[in-house]
């Protein structure tokens, strides 16, 4: 099982729906793809939808934290939504709950950001 990402842009927000496993191996190409899209389209906010992510380790935490620092520099917001039971524990351990905005789903994220 590898990783696939369905990505779309709405206003200045990049939405990333992840399916599969986010580890050191799969994080490399995801990071490159996100970085180039964010530069190219002048992205301010980022929303990760983790509904179909079946595995994540500390490399995945590193990717999210890395994007968080980037977004924060541009006064943007990083939102993580649809956290499932398989990855909940690692997100809890990493302290991401304390620094990120967590929403139930993408609709809630859209409401939070006001990107209608």
């Amino acid at each position: 099982m590898s990783l696939s990402a369905y990505i779309y842009i709405r206003a200045d927000t990049l939405f990333v729906r992840l399916t599969g496993e986010l580890d050191h191996h799969t994080s490399k190409s995801l990071r490159d793809r996100l970085n180039s899209l964010m530069m190219e389209y002048d992205i301010k906010n980022l929303v990760f939808n983790l509904k179909n992510l079946t595995f994540m380790d500390s490399s995945g935490i590193g990717v999210i934290l890395g994007r968080y620092h980037y977004v924060k520099q541009n006064n943007g917001t990083l939102i993580v939504c649809e956290i499932n039971s398989q990855i909940e524990k690692i997100i809890q351990l990493s302290g991401l709950y304390k620094i990120l905005v967590i929403t139930k789903d993408e609709d809630q994220a859209i409401n939070y950001l006001g990107v209608a």
Binding site: S58, S59, G62, V63, L65, G66, I90, L93, S94
Partner: peptide
């Protein structure tokens, strides 16, 4: 510089 979270060993321990 490689965006390592520095949590690997701690996670294994937990």
């Amino acid at each position: 510089e490689e965006e390592r979270s520095g949590m690997g060993l701690t996670i294994m321990e937990i």
